[in-house]
Design a protein around this nucleic acid. Sequence first.
DNA 1: GCGCAATGATTACAACTGTAGTCAATAAGG
DNA 2: CCTTATTGACTACAGTTGTAATCATTGCGC
Lengths: 121, 121
Amino acid sequence: MERIAEGEYAVMEVLWNESPLTAAEVADRVPADRGWSLPTVKTMLSRLLAKGALDHAQDGRRYLYRPAIARADYVAEESGRLIDRMFGGRLTPLVAHLAARDRLTPADIEEIEALLKALKS
Amino acid sequence: MERIAEGEYAVMEVLWNESPLTAAEVADRVPADRGWSLPTVKTMLSRLLAKGALDHAQDGRRYLYRPAIARADYVAEESGRLIDRMFGGRLTPLVAHLAARDRLTPADIEEIEALLKALKS
DNA sequence: GCGCAATGATTACAACTGTAGTCAATAAGG
DNA sequence: CCTTATTGACTACAGTTGTAATCATTGCGC
């Protein structure tokens, strides 16, 4: 399963959120700040098909697209990759790093503590 | 500050670890599994200079390279980007995700709990 | 039935990336 | 001194990515 590029990821997000969809429907749902034209979205869909990240089923004269890989799998791979590269594969340094950067609010801390507690039981 | 590509990142890692270094020294220290020739490393160094990610100081007929950006800043940007994209900017879902994927050992959990406890005081 | 709008396929093209090769200058070793 | 190894600069070239345009087909609305 090949790498999904940043732009392509935006298309995957749309389809993970709702599928199957036609090309035009995907284009409608892509975040407006991308500023993509319909042809651009179609290019993305073709490339994702070629990469095996999407499936398509004929529906009359058009296709209905749907994800061929699970979002959770993709997210697992990407976050694992980042943690491996930057934090030696361990989560603690990431948490420490975010804490030091004030990316953790007290509410976040409570929430994670509760989560960890649940994990231990 | 432009984006640093995956391959370029390997060079940055070397220099964050030890600097300043000459091009040849960097090439020596790049992980062997990259299989890079010296010219390849030099290309990376030039591009990183052009991107402003490195500085160089003349030393006789060669240069000594050193990072122009802090590792912590780079890591903050990259991990922030990933968390924004995949977890809506919040860390808790990331932790939950990793836990569900068995990427958290009991030791990790203890460690993070201790860290969070320290943060609260 | 026919023209038009929608649709997939194909093509385009510049920037970035990975991975070098070539070349000219020059310092270092014999 | 002269050769040679080192070094930075420049060039190369294919693959990926972002961002489309064009083209041929074809089903739908009139």
